[in-house]
Each structure stands twice: as structure tokens, then as C-alpha cells.
Design a protein around this nucleic acid. Structure first.
Lengths: 191, 191
DNA sequence: ATTATCTATAGATCTATAGATAATGC
DNA sequence: ATTATCTATAGATCTATAGATAATGC
């Protein structure tokens, strides 16, 4: 039954990865600990040896997901710079975020678009993880904006998150694509 | 036990109002039928005589909430026009939406900011109600934009919804207010 | 006779905990 | 000896339905 410390750490890590996916897919109230642990290949009761509560796991998942977004944005900017030294870094990020791939893959996408309302309701560590992620992503945006303004970075961040959130809530694929295109246009024109 | 048709219609209406509030406050998965009916002054089992399912009620609630937003926007524009004939209608709407009042009152606020992610997961009638609301609100925005462009209207709509959603998800009130101010600035400058 | 609402329940799920087990790490 | 994981369960909640009740509306 018992595994090595190393394996236990890997198991814990896998639970966070599973939560990161299932919470985005089903919402924080849409998946239970038992199913989450089963999807991680562990049993229900084992959860509470690794995490204090469901909220604590949710906060770790949000931190991980937004950390992955930071990594992705940095990589996109690096690669874009290498491929095309005089390119348009903001366009690179915006087209990646407001893409059909992101629209159709909420379970692997930005936590803002799937978990922001849940975070607002729960507050605490989950909301703190959201705040930290916002600061980090806004910082990246500032670094590639001509004036480097924090306000402009926050506006772009919320424009991107809002457009993807509404596009997914739509019953009409054409309206969804219009929403994304409109936001891409507004962000890239407003400079 | 049985009440008149008129009273039954009033009871049904009250359940929708209760759902409109509690769903926004707690999320679609955060409140059950039994508690919702109790909050409406009725018993659990009575629900299924009035609604086919929880999803069906949720769709009616989204329709009602976004209908109220349409009413509110129309009223704000009418009143603004009466008070100041040469005023700034877009500013009126944006300042009302991106306000501290709206930030602190999700249970009476725009459905986009509280229920969009849930609608994306559920699809069906709930997502259809979201789509219809988006079209209606975008139409109002178009009517007050100088070029009347649908793209610009959709961009403004998602900018407003996104900024409020992220502002509420924040653990830091200062960051929340920065987010709202940034979006107000971006929308009103981008004309 | 119809029907709005009621009580009661099925059957499934929820978070969290208690205590057992068995392998690790000292 | 410690501890990662297990089984089992408490106690609460979930959606939905069945069948009873009693007042309305014909």
C-alpha cells in the first residue's frame, strides 16, 4: 500500500494535474474528490493525506494552470522573436489566445475563462492564486507594449478572457467566432 | 394545498426570480432544487410540476436576467438622453456596468459575469439564452456607436464582461478596481 | 375532473474522517 | 517507527419521481 516518498510526491503531482484538467472541464463544483482521485489512479481516502481540503487543491490547480499560461506566453514570445526578429509579439499572443484551438479546448486552456466565477465565489486561496496569475500575465503584456502601461495590459487581459468566456457560452458557433475576431481586432487596433 | 391558476403562475414566477438570484450567487451547481424551492416558499417536490428540469429553470433564469439587463440599458440611455441631450451614452452604460455597485453585487448583476462558464459547460437551452442575450445587448451597443459596427459592439461587450469577471475573481480590491478602471479607459478611448 | 402542491423516497452523489494495512526509511 | 494509501463509513446533499391531498374550475 505505502509507496516511496518520491512516488508519493509524483502521485500528489498527478492529482494536481488531474484537478487542473477536470476543474476546468466541469467547474469546481462539477467534479468530486472520489472521481478526481479515481481519475488519478488512487482511492478516495488517500486525498486527505496529501491535501487539506478540496479548496486547497483547487488553489494549487489554479496556480499550476496560470503558471503554464505564463510559460506558454514566454515560449511563444521567444520563438516569435527567433523566427521573425522584427515581428509583432502582441499579435502572436492574441492570436494564440483567441484561437479556435483555445475555444474548443477549455480543459487545457486559460483558467480565467473556466474558473474565474468559481474563484470569485470561493475567495481565499483560490482567489489569491487568480490574483497572482493576473499580475504575472499582465507583467508579460507590459513588457511587449510600446508604452508599457499597466492599465493597457490589464485591459487587454480582460478583453481576451471575456471574449473567450462569452464565445464558449454561445450556442452559435458563428457568433463565437465573431466574438473572437472582434476582440482580436479591438486589441490589435487599440495601440 | 392546491392554489388558483393565477397564484400558481405567480409561484412559478417567484421560483424563476429566486433562481435568478441564487444561481448568480452560487453558480448552477452551487444551489439545489430543494433549497431553491424552500427559498421560494414552496416544497421540493412542487418544482417538477412547474419545470421540466433544473436545466430548463436555469435557461429561464438566464433569459430573465439578460432581459433585465436589456431593460436597464434602455432605461439608462433614455434617462441620460432626457437629462443631457448632448451626452455620452456609451460612457453612461460603461460606467454603470464597470461600477463598484456591480462589482459587489454579483447576485443582482449581469449573467455573463457569473454564469457564462456554467452555460458553456451545459450548452443547450442555457447557452441559447446566453446567445440571445448577447445579440440583444450587442444590438443596443450598436445603436449608440458612431459607426454602428457589430464587431465593435461585440468587442465592448466582452471587454465589459471580462473585466468584471476578473475583477471579482481577484483577492485584492485594489487590483479589482484597477481592472475596472483599465477597461473603462480602453472602451471609452477606443472610439 | 383537474391540477398545484404536498410528503416521502429512491438512488446517487458529496466532503471529510476513522482506523487498518503494509511498505518505506531510519 | 513512520507514513502513503487503503477500505469503510458518517452525515449531508443531489436530481427526479411516485403517489396523496385538497382546492380550483368546470
Amino acid at each position: 500500500m505505502r509507496v516511496s516518498r518520491e512516488q508519493a510526491a509524483l502521485n500528489r503531482d498527478r492529482v494536481i494535474d488531474t484537478g487542473a484538467r477536470l476543474f476546468r472541464e466541469k467547474g469546481l463544483d462539477g467534479i468530486g474528490i472520489a472521481d478526481l482521485m479515481k481519475a488519478s489512479g488512487l482511492t478516495h481516502g488517500g486525498f486527505y493525506g496529501q491535501f487539506e481540503s478540496k479548496d486547497a487543491l483547487a488553489a494549487e490547480c489554479v496556480t499550476r494552470v496560470l503558471g503554464k499560461s505564463v510559460e506558454r506566453w514566454r515560449r511563444l514570445l521567444e520563438e516569435g522573436l527567433l523566427e521573425e526578429p522584427g515581428g509583432d509579439p502582441l499579435r502572436t499572443l492574441v492570436e494564440d489566445y483567441l484561437s479556435a484551438r483555445h475555444l474548443n479546448g477549455p480543459e487545457t486552456g486559460c483558467a480565467f475563462t473556466t474558473l474565474a466565477a468559481d474563484a470569485a465565489r470561493r475567495g481565499g486561496a483560490v482567489a489569491q492564486a487568480m490574483s497572482d496569475g493576473m499580475e504575472a500575465l499582465a507583467g508579460i503584456l507590459r513588457s511587449i507594449l510600446p508604452d508599457g502601461g499597466r492599465g493597457r495590459a490589464l485591459a487587454i487581459l480582460s478583453q481576451m478572457a471575456g471574449a473567450m468566456t462569452l464565445a464558449r457560452a454561445t450556442a452559435d458557433p458563428a457568433l463565437a467566432e465573431e466574438m473572437l475576431a472582434a476582440a482580436r481586432g479591438a486589441i490589435l487596433a487599440g495601440r
